[in-house]
Write a protein that binds this DNA or RNA. Structure first.
Length: 422
RNA sequence: GCGUAGGUGGCAGAGCGGUCAAUUGCAAUAGACUGUAAAUCUAUCGCCCCAUGGGCUACGGGGGUUCAAAUCCCUCCCUACGCACCA
């Protein structure tokens, strides 16, 4: 399957403006150095590069989206791109997760996830046509390696080099355990690029270490100068990562409304970086907004009537991002919904609808529908005045029974329409 | 293998026989406020009940001592550190 070099002629575009944009926008670093890669991109040579994704969950998130978008830029220029599914790694389980007992994925789950990934990635990438993006699985080669092969690979890296890595370094400092097999992950990831014999790799800057291990391998084993392009991570000014752990990371399979809401909850400092990383807006336009935002921040005297309200920029950001994943119409709708729900205290469009008999206890309904975790939680919410039928006073009794069809609101974000049955 | 220090709620980390469903911080949820689901302030934050009260389940696993254990004892498992061993 490998070895068959694409024989079709694909036109490689060497437009300087495009290449520069490719190399700067949302890019943290380029190894060995920027000019090296620029030179190759301008040479007309068709490069092969890849982005590796570990199938740890069923969906990709916005962070992946950013990198896939970058990959697309390479594809658009005519280069051969590979979406590598790290199924081998996934099947073994990720060591970075100290909460240990992560379930090991079965072959079926991995393939299932991968299918979703391709679907979600096809928002950006073209998997068909003249220059299709390829999908590969690293179990294809990693699964076949013998202990001897592994030893040979490990002899290329020293323990000190491994320990230099932040992730390990921190754990040593914190007195947390490091298991030997965790050392193997960089090796496995590093070997991917050898197996695929690529020209380069892109990834988040948190993957820099692993990608550089691969760079070393390729140099030693194939005498090839692999380029590594690391993308900026989406962080706010304080450097806080928009990761899954932060709870505000957007999954690519989320519906438009949810996505929109999540983005609106981001801190202001994230607006400009997100425009750069996640949208197609021109850099000049983004810089213009940045300028306006900064001016706005300094003339806070205009309390509240500030024409450069960050909220409006964030609204635009949310619209732009949702547009990419769900299309223009849905994005617009989500925006209107958001306005209605949160600004004016209304009700969103698509809400859960259920049927129950008259005089059923509200608490039981909400528990059954999963809107509250327990009856105790329900009781607490009632005490806090968080439960009300839309347009009515909050209810006060824990054993409140429904008497008519109504839309119920629990807190600001949970809604349910309960119809009286029969 | 020996020794030492540890394993507590989503995480971090107190408590070291009763007053502990467990201080505190973070996270989370709600209310107020706000341009926002930001910030801030306030409250809540195991589960269940005919509820200013009561019950159940929890402090690595199992067993024991006691009227009473997260707290004491035994045992097993796990982690860190030191020593020993080491192709």
């Amino acid at each position: 399957m490998f070895g068959i070099k694409n024989t079709k002629k694909v036109n490689v575009i060497c437009d300087e403006v495009k290449v520069t944009e490719l190399l700067t926008r949302g890019v943290e670093n380029v190894y060995p150095k920027l000019d090296f890669l620029k030179g190759r991109l301008m040479s007309g040579e068709r490069l092969t590069l890849y982005l590796g994704i570990d199938p740890t969950g069923p969906t990709l998130h916005l962070g992946h989206g950013i990198l896939i978008k970058k990959l697309k830029e390479f594809q658009d220029l005519g280069h051969e791109i590979i979406l590598l599914i790290g199924d081998f790694t996934g099947m073994i389980g990720d060591p970075t997760d100290k909460s240990a007992t992560r379930k090991k994925l079965t072959r079926e789950q991995v393939l299932e996830n991968a299918k979703e990934y391709v679907k979600q990635a096809s928002v950006f990438l073209n998997f068909k046509g003249e220059n299709p993006a390829l999908v590969k699985y690293n179990s294809e080669w990693l699964g076949k390696m013998s202990f001897g092969d592994v030893l040979e690979l490990s002899s290329l890296v020293t323990v000190d080099q491994m320990l230099k890595r932040d992730m390990f370094d921190n754990r040593v400092k914190e007195g947390k355990p490091i298991y030997l097999h965790e050392f193997m992950y960089p090796l496995m990831q590093g070997y991917d690029c050898v197996a695929m014999n690529v020209d380069g790799e892109i990834g988040g800057n948190d993957q820099t270490f692993n990608m550089l291990v691969g760079r070393d391998f390729l140099k030693i084993l194939k005498n090839k100068e692999k380029f590594v392009l690391t993308g900026k991570l989406l962080t706010d000014s304080a450097g806080k990562k928009m990761g899954k752990t932060e709870g505000n990371m957007v999954s690519l399979d989320q519906d438009a409304g949810e996505m929109f809401g999540k983005i609106m909850s981001w801190a202001d400092g994230l607006i400009i970086p997100a425009f750069e990383l996640c949208t197609y807006l021109k850099m000049e336009e983004i810089q213009e907004m940045d300028k306006k935002l900064k001016e706005g921040a300094s003339d806070g005297i205009n309390e509240g009537i500030n024409p450069r309200n960050p909220r409006d920029f964030k609204f635009k950001l949310a619209t732009e991002i949702v547009k990419i994943y769900h299309g223009e119409a849905k994005a617009k709708e989500a925006g209107e919904d958001f306005e209605k729900t949160f600004k004016k205290g209304g009700v969103p469009e698509d809400i859960m609808e259920v049927n129950f008999a008259k005089d059923t206890r509200l608490g039981e309904i909400l528990l059954a529908e999963g809107l509250v975790k327990s009856k105790s939680e329900f009781a607490r919410l009632v005490d806090e005045g968080a439960v009300s039928a839309v347009g009515k006073e909050a209810i006060k009794t824990h054993d409140f029974k429904i008497s008519e069809s109504a839309v119920w609101k629990i807190g600001k974000r949970r809604f349910i329409k309960i119809n009286i049955k029969g």
